[in-house]
Structures are given as C-alpha cells and as structure tokens.
C-alpha cells in the first residue's frame, strides 16, 4: 500500500507492506537514531514524535502515520545538540543507546511543560529506560539545561 508521510519536514511517498512498523520505516529512510530495545513497548528507545506527541515507533504501524508528521532526532539536530551538551557535560551519555529516545522525550516534556519540577521530569521520562547511567547524571543535565534556558530568557549571561 502507498503512504504519504512528512518525515522530518520532508514529504515522502512510499510503497509499504501493511504490517511495517514505523520504527522500521524510519530506519529504512536513514533515521538510524531510532533504536529498538525490546518487543514489549517497555524501553522507550524508539520514541519519535507523531505530529507533536511522543510515541513508541515500535508499536505504531507505518500505515497509521499516513498523512501525519513524523519527527525523529535527525529532524531536531539543533535542539538535540543544545540540550545534549548538558548531558555530555555530565558524562551521562554513556553507551548512548538510550539517548535518542530519551532526548526526544525530554524535548517533548520541555515543549509541554517548560519549567518542570524534579518529580515531573522523572515521571514524564519514566518510560525511557537507561541501564548505564543510573539516571542521576541525566537529571543533573536536565536541571542545568532548564536553569540555563531560564537565565537565557531573562537575559542573564553566565
């Protein structure tokens, strides 16, 4: 069947099999940041935006994304680098395999709630598993990023 998807801002038309999952569709289109970590929708590694919502691309039929906008980290490189730098400054991007999904979902959080508290951050990101970092460094990075953003908005230079 034929589907039309706007993938990272680019309109594409493809012939696909009806049971093709969105994760395999986007990876085939070169969006290798999207990772597979499980078969039971638990790990969050495959997080992408469907329109503006973070979803699990491993659990979505590509067919269902027909006519929709799909965004992966490849389409958010500037935001990823800006936020990711704060994770990098903690050394919290260890193996990095959870990072794309985690960063996608973190960006979704910031859009939904620009000034989340610690508990809100943890709960929003609960579906993003990480085995390397113990989550603590990622939280430090997030809090530093949020503080930096707040200062930037206020026009405070660091």
């Amino acid at each position: 069947m034929l589907i039309n998807i706007v993938l990272n801002g680019k309109k594409i038309t493809r012939e696909i099999e009806p049971d093709l999952l969105l994760i395999d569709f986007v990876r085939k289109e070169g969006c290798f940041s999207v990772k597979r970590g499980c078969e039971t929708s638990n790990c969050g590694l495959c997080t992408v935006f469907l329109n503006d919502k973070p979803v699990l691309s491993c659990s979505l039929l590509a067919a269902r994304a027909d006519g929709q906008q799909v965004t992966t980290l490849e389409g958010l490189q500037e935001e990823a680098a800006e936020f990711g730098a704060f994770i990098a400054d903690q050394g919290a991007e260890q193996c990095g395999f959870c990072n794309p999904g985690f960063i996608m979902n973190a960006l979704a959080l910031f859009r939904e709630n620009p000034e989340p508290g610690e508990e809100e951050i943890k709960e929003y990101l609960a579906g993003n598993l990480c085995r390397c970092s113990g989550y603590e460094g990622q939280l430090r990075g997030i809090l530093n990023f949020l503080a930096w953003k707040k200062d930037k908005k206020r026009g405070v230079s660091l």
Partner: peptide, 12 residues
C-alpha cells in the same frame, strides 16, 4: 493511569 509504562505508551 500514571504508572502505566510511560507517557509515550499512554499516547498510543
């Protein structure tokens, strides 16, 4: 709802 896996899961 809030304990069910994660936000991305609950968005689907």
């Amino acid at each position: 709802m809030r304990h069910i896996v994660g936000v991305q899961f609950r968005n689907l």
